[in-house]
């Protein structure tokens, strides 16, 4: 019973969404289920928060190694939540000035916008920027032009990289007009428009087929792995 009810809930919800795309009569169910889905997904953040608090509080109470970082995480979490939910420092919407909570949650000058601008953005964008070094380092160690496939990958990467920079223009800018197609910036565009389009299109079609097949397996009750161990048919 513990597996049967969830399976049927998934089947009914899934087919309601599917039918709503084909039968106008069932459109209402699709829209309503979509609304419910977005609310449940938003409430799921609370689950994530609970899990975060549970793990970090356990670490702090056990005085595990690095428990101080857990305390910082919890403090930052609580502070951001407090200023965000309370719209601290958010001026009211000029149209509805009598309502103190009518302003935009991330209005300029608010505490939430301050955290976003000086905490979230610097850390996340620097973390992504760090990948430039690691990708380059990994590529230097792993990429070897051993066969035709590797040569194609490497040369395409170089052409795209150089073609999008001033160096590419300088290196091949002297090519005569009749060979202008071979200039790195033009070659880069041609690769993106032709070869990259073809490859990506095939990958997208493959993904679409895979997602559709997996979704159908769930809706037909064939795939129950999402229910955890022992859920497989």
């Amino acid at each position: 019973m513990r597996r049967l009810i969830p399976m049927w809930i998934a089947i009914i919800a899934g087919f309601a969404m599917l039918f709503s795309a084909f039968f106008p009569v069932t459109e209402f169910f699709g829209e309503t289920f979509g609304e419910i889905f977005s609310v449940v997904a938003a409430i799921a953040y609370v689950l994530g928060a609970g899990s975060l608090a549970k793990i970090n509080l356990a670490k702090i109470s056990r005085r595990d190694q690095g428990w101080g970082y857990s305390a910082i995480t919890l403090f930052c979490f609580a502070a951001t939540l407090f200023v965000g939910l309370g719209k601290i420092g958010v001026p009211p919407n000029a149209q509805f000035a009598a309502l103190p909570w009518s302003g935009e949650k991330n209005a300029e000058g608010s505490a939430f916008a301050w955290i976003y601008e000086y905490g979230l953005v610097p850390i996340t964008s620097t973390m992504f920027a760090l990948l430039a070094f690691y990708v380059a380092s990994a590529a230097f160690r792993a990429f070897r032009a051993k066969n035709l496939e590797a040569i194609l990958l490497l040369s395409t990467a170089f052409i795209v990289l150089l073609g999008r920079t001033f160096a590419g223009v300088v290196l091949t800018g002297w090519f005569p007009d009749w060979a202008s197609g071979l200039r790195l910036e033009n070659l880069s565009v041609y690769i993106m428009q032709v070869f990259n389009t073809a490859g990506n299109r095939a990958i997208i079609i493959g993904i679409a087929l895979g997602v559709t097949a997996t979704s159908l397996r769930i809706l037909l009750g064939v795939d129950r792995s999402w229910m955890g161990s022992g859920g497989n048919s």
Partner: peptide
């Protein structure tokens, strides 16, 4: 199950 079904 509801989330999985709607997503599928």
């Amino acid at each position: 199950a509801f989330i999985i079904g709607v997503t599928a």
